[in-house]
Nucleic acid binder design. Structure first.
Length: 804
DNA sequence: AGCACGCCGACT
DNA sequence: GTCGGCGTGCTC
């Protein structure tokens, strides 16, 4: 009795979000394994799609004829039993499709590409042969589409003159290096030398070189370039049987050119030892426990991580560590590589798809024991996990904004449970959710109270910008900040300036009539981009010229408003003409490696001031930075987001940590229009505990997280009325499954009500224990499939991060 | 997603 | 009368 394979097919719809049974042809029976990618026929016509084998079954309850698997795409599984189960669970929890989850877990190159090929199978008109097929016997669907000949192709197919073939193409590539292997002995080569013409200098040279290579030795073909021997000349030798050229696969190592000095563990402080001991106990006893490691910046959390990982490796297990993408700096990677050498695999967005795949395979083959990476690394194919670390656990980038909308912290805990291993959540400013769980003893709280080397926390000065304005200073920079910047330049010390970009944009406004240039497709203002000298919509990418006169009143006084990094840089340069400034923002760091280059330049003291957005706030250690300025602390306070105070507090605490990391004491200047706001005042006093208490109280009074869970239902449609009507309908649908305690906010139009010419509405559901809610949401998605197919978008976001 | 089946309008 | 519109339903 042969088995059937359960396959999840690459068709992301609700109707197909389930395993399909396929027969396994005899030739694959021996090789097929759970977790492999396969090519299967699916649906009518000759369509084939990629699928994942998620299990085997003796029989199927499907009444029709079963189809057979067409081919296997892997020699070894790409998904382990653990990841197969995790994907299934994630799909349910995040209201997503299983296939999407599996694709998210794997490197991009493992996602199939589909090619539709049109093959000629019968005689056709000369003209068609020439115009369409250009004399070839097959063309791709896309080529035909470009020639606007798809209807012709379909007609030819009906006439049986062409055949449309569906191919699943594998994108995986491995880097191959050509090696040369001698096949003859010294004596045989000597004989060969006799038999060839003495004028064939290159051939003689080649034979001489071959004689120098030991038997069984492989030499890289590229080495022969040094002797001016081309590949063609080597191939001639291959034809004569002197040698053989073989290709061997090598893994790309993005850090190959860099050598890392090895470092040894540092001596731990009493706080660090206590934390280490507590976590290590869980490691040694294979106990799943979640630790919240709270330590101020510079308190040595990383050293605790490193030493715990070392224990895990000694036990023969692996460790997974997540850091936010922008904190994944060369400095960070270096710390891990220099402690654990080649056992470290690094996954981040700067790698090419091929490089990512190679790092992934290094992990999968168990050549790497330590994985360091951003959000998606939480799915790394480590088989024996002994520890998972989420550094800077409060960062919102751990929540993916696209489907599947998972939170890496939740996945970490899932995997920690599966592997019976501890999970560490580390932060100087833990999220309220995590800190509250620690209070309720769901997590174990570990604290590092002191900075290493007895460094003190920097002094924070808050400058009231309203006073500045009253005193006639309308510039971006307060008098105090300017003076302090000048002092640093004099003393040859460095400063970091942070421009808080959250909720800020530079838009063009008419000073006479107040006209703001908006996007024609979306209800937001367009942003000014000085580098390309264009206006751009950040939502849909629409671009147009910068207006010279106001489109509404023809006034000439239309100009930009708001503060972009570029404008601040210009203003700063004007204010302090001799200051050497490095600006870091999305524009100057777009190119690969630009980020690192700018930091290196700053490190080498080629500049006095580093000016940038959030990306400069993380994990960087510059000993000569003694001043940190926050230009606009409170732009993020005004956002319609219940976490805005928390975000502001975290940001200010974070940047303050950048100052005074060396021997010199540091100073922080925060410019604000709301200097008395508790988030600013408590950040000034480095008082997380007081902030936590105060903020928890506010959250309790306003019924927000962590007291309530949140679920966001969004709906969009081309027609405003339809979208509005539908979301009301859906809320009515969900209501019966909610208890009295649940609170429904909205529905309301989103603050950016229109993008891409679609109208968006959303509603928030606040709840504590609602057993039936998740099931009801799934039902809602199921029952609205028809409407979804007709252009109604519905999205359910469990524990959303943004509300705007 | 992509395809077939099926039931209504305007054409050789 | 039929060709083709896209609404509906299914894919192992």
């Amino acid at each position: 009795m042969s088995l059937l394979a359960d396959v999840i097919v690459d068709v992301p719809t609700l109707q197909t979000n389930q395993p399909y049974s396929y027969k396994i042809p005899d030739q694959f029976a021996e090789f097929i394994q759970k977790g492999m990618r396969v090519v299967v026929p699916f649906g009518k016509g000759g369509r084939t799609v990629q699928g994942f084998v998620v299990g085997f079954n003796k029989e199927s309850d499907y009444s029709g004829d079963l189809k057979a698997i067409q081919s296997l795409m892997d020699n070894t599984p790409v998904l382990s039993d653990e990841l197969i189960a995790l994907g299934k669970d994630l799909a349910y929890k995040t209201f997503s499709f299983r296939i999407k989850c599996y694709q998210t877990m794997l490197p991009a190159v493992l996602k199939a590409k589909y090619v539709r090929q049109i093959h000629l199978i019968d005689e056709v008109d000369e003209k068609i042969l020439f115009d369409l097929f250009k004399g070839k016997d097959s063309i791709t669907w896309e080529e035909a589409e470009k020639l606007k000949a798809l209807d012709l192709v379909l007609k030819l197919e009906k006439e049986n003159k062409v055949h449309i073939d569906y191919e699943v193409k594998d994108k995986t590539t491995t880097k191959k290096v050509k090696y040369l292997k001698p096949l003859m002995t010294f004596e045989q080569l000597e004989e060969e030398k006799m038999s060839i013409s003495k004028n064939a200098h290159k051939q003689v040279l080649f034979l001489n070189l071959l004689q120098q290579i030991a038997e069984e030795e492989l030499v890289e073909v590229s080495k022969f370039k040094e002797y001016d021997l081309s590949l063609a000349q080597l191939r001639t030798g291959e034809k004569k049987g002197w040698c053989e050229i073989i290709e061997k696969e090598v893994l790309r190592d993005p850090f190959a050119a860099i050598t890392f000095e090895t470092t040894s563990p540092l001596v731990l402080s009493p706080d660090q030892s206590a934390a280490f001991e507590a976590i290590n106990e869980s490691v040694q006893s294979d106990e799943h426990k979640v630790f919240l490691l709270k330590g101020v910046t510079g308190s040595g959390k990383t050293e605790v991580y490193l030493q715990t990982i070392s224990e895990v490796i000694d036990k023969g297990q692996g460790a997974l560590m997540l850091v936010p993408e922008i904190a994944l700096t060369p400095q960070m990677v270096e710390r891990f590589k220099s402690r654990f050498g080649d056992q470290v695999a690094v996954l981040h967005s700067g790698l090419s798809d091929g490089e990512k795949y190679d790092e992934w395979r290094k992990i999968e083959r168990e050549e790497a024991k330590v994985v360091v990476g951003a959000r998606s690394s939480i799915f790394a194919p480590l088989k024996h996990i002994g520890l998972i670390i989420i550094d800077e656990e409060h960062e919102t980038t751990y929540k993916q904004e696209e489907f599947p909308k998972y939170h890496a912290r939740d996945v970490a805990i899932w995997r920690g449970q599966y592997h019976n291993c501890p999970v560490i959540l580390g932060s100087a400013t833990p999220s309220l959710e995590s800190r509250a769980r620690a209070s309720k003893k769901v997590y174990t709280l570990l604290e590092l109270k002191e900075r290493a080397n007895n460094a003190s926390m920097p002094e924070v000065k808050v400058v009231d910008m309203r006073d500045e304005a009253r005193n006639g200073n309308r510039s971006t920079f307060s008098v105090t900040l300017k003076e302090e910047l000048l002092k640093r330049i004099e003393k040859n010390e460095q400063s970091v300036l942070l421009l808080n970009r959250r909720g800020y944009s530079s838009f063009v406004m008419c000073r006479d009539c107040g006209f703001v240039l908006g996007c024609p497709n979306c209800d937001i203002s367009q942003t000014l981009h000085m580098d390309t000298k264009k206006m751009k919509c950040h939502y849909c990418g629409h671009e147009e010229q910068i207006p010279r006169t106001c489109p509404a009143c023809q006034s000439q006084s239309i100009r930009y408003y708001g503060t972009g990094t570029q404008k601040v840089e210009e203003e700063l340069q004007e204010l302090i003409p001799h200051a050497r400034i490095i600006r870091m923002d999305v524009d100057t760091t777009r190119k690969k490696g630009a980020h690192q280059k700018l930091f290196k330049r700053f490190e080498k003291k080629e500049a006095d001031i580093l000016l940038g957005t959030q990306m400069i706030a993380k994990g960087l250690d510059f000993p000569d930075v003694t001043l940190v300025g926050v230009i606009n602390a409170d732009t993020s306070l005004g956002l319609p987001d219940f976490r805005s105070a928390e975000k502001t507090f975290q940001l200010l605490t974070q940047v303050s940590g950048r100052s005074g990391r060396g021997e010199k004491t540091g100073e922080v200047i925060v410019q604000s229009f709301n200097p008395d706001h508790y988030a600013i005042q408590l950040a000034k006093h480095h008082d997380y505990d007081a902030f936590y208490k105060k903020e928890m109280n506010l959250r309790r009074l306003s019924d927000y997280s962590p007291y309530y869970f949140l679920l966001k239902l969004s709906v969009s449609h081309e027609d405003e009325m339809t979208a509005a009507k539908k979301i009301h309908e859906f809320v009515q649908f969900l209501k019966p499954s909610l208890s009295e305690k649940a609170i429904i906010l909205g529905p309301t139009p989103k603050s950016i009500a229109r993008t891409h010419n679609r109208y968006h509405f959303q509603t928030l559901i606040k709840y504590k224990n609602e057993e039936k809610l998740k099931e009801a949401c799934h039902e809602l998605l199921q029952s609205t499939q028809r409407e979804q197919a007709k252009g109604l978008f519905i999205s359910i976001d469990y524990q959303p991060i943004d509300f705007i």
